[in-house]
C-alpha cells in the first residue's frame, strides 16, 4: 500500500473559523444586550445578572476559540489512499479514525456562506454506523475527491 503523507486543511479555513467564532460572539452579545433591555421592563436585577453572565461566557468561549484556531489547523489532518480515509485530530488528546472506503455509504458536500467566500466545501463521510466530518477543503479538490471515493467504493464493492 503506497504511503501518502497526511494533508492539512487549506490555510484559508482558519479565516472561516475566526469569522465563525466572531459571529457566534456577536450572537452572544446580542442576546446579552436583549436581556439587559428586558431588565428595563421588569425584574431588573435578574435580567442584568443574566446579561453579565452571557457576556462573560461569550468572552471566554471566543477567546478560547480564537486561541485554538492555529492549534486546530495544525493538528487536524486527513489522508486518503486507495483503501481508506484517515482523519487525525488533536495534539494533547489524539484521535485517529480509519474509515475504509468500502464501508462508506454516502458522501455529503456542504457549503455555507462563510465557506463559499473562501471557495471551500465541508465533507461528511457516512458509514452504516457513524458519520465523520472534514471541516473544509477547496471545492475543486472536493469534487475530485467525491469522484475518487465513488469509483473506489464501486471497485471495492465489485471486489467483495
Amino acid at each position: 500500500m503506497p504511503k501518502t503523507a497526511a494533508k492539512h486543511l487549506p490555510k484559508t479555513i482558519r479565516i472561516v473559523w475566526i469569522w465563525t467564532s466572531l459571529l457566534v460572539a456577536l450572537g452572544g452579545v446580542i442576546l446579552a444586550g436583549g436581556s439587559w433591555l428586558l431588565g428595563a421592563w421588569f425584574a431588573p436585577t435578574f435580567w442584568h445578572v443574566i446579561a453579565v453572565i452571557l457576556l462573560v461566557l461569550t468572552l471566554i468561549i471566543t477567546i478560547i476559540d480564537l486561541a485554538f484556531v492555529n492549534y486546530r489547523w495544525q493538528f487536524n489532518t486527513y489522508l486518503v489512499n486507495p483503501r481508506q480515509f484517515e482523519l487525525h485530530d488533536g495534539y494533547f488528546f489524539r484521535k485517529q479514525t480509519v474509515i475504509p472506503i468500502a464501508q462508506i455509504q454516502n458522501i455529503k458536500l456542504e457549503q455555507g456562506p462563510l465557506l463559499r467566500t473562501k471557495n471551500l466545501q465541508a465533507i461528511t463521510l457516512v458509514t452504516a454506523a457513524s458519520s465523520h466530518k472534514i471541516a473544509g477543503i477547496p471545492t475543486a479538490e472536493s469534487e475530485q475527491f467525491k469522484t475518487l471515493v465513488m469509483t473506489l467504493a464501486q471497485e471495492a464493492r465489485d471486489d467483495a
Binding site: 494533547f92 488528546f93 489524539r94 484521535k95 485517529q96 479514525t97 468500502a102 458509514t127 454506523a129
Partner: peptide, 27 residues
Amino acid sequence: HHVQTLQLRTSLWLQKRHYGHLTLQFR
C-alpha cells in the same frame, strides 16, 4: 469487514507511556 470504522485515541501523556484506547463502530 463488519467493523465500520476503527478509532485509536491517546493523549500526550499516555503516548509517552506507549498506551492508548481503541474504539470500534459497528452496526
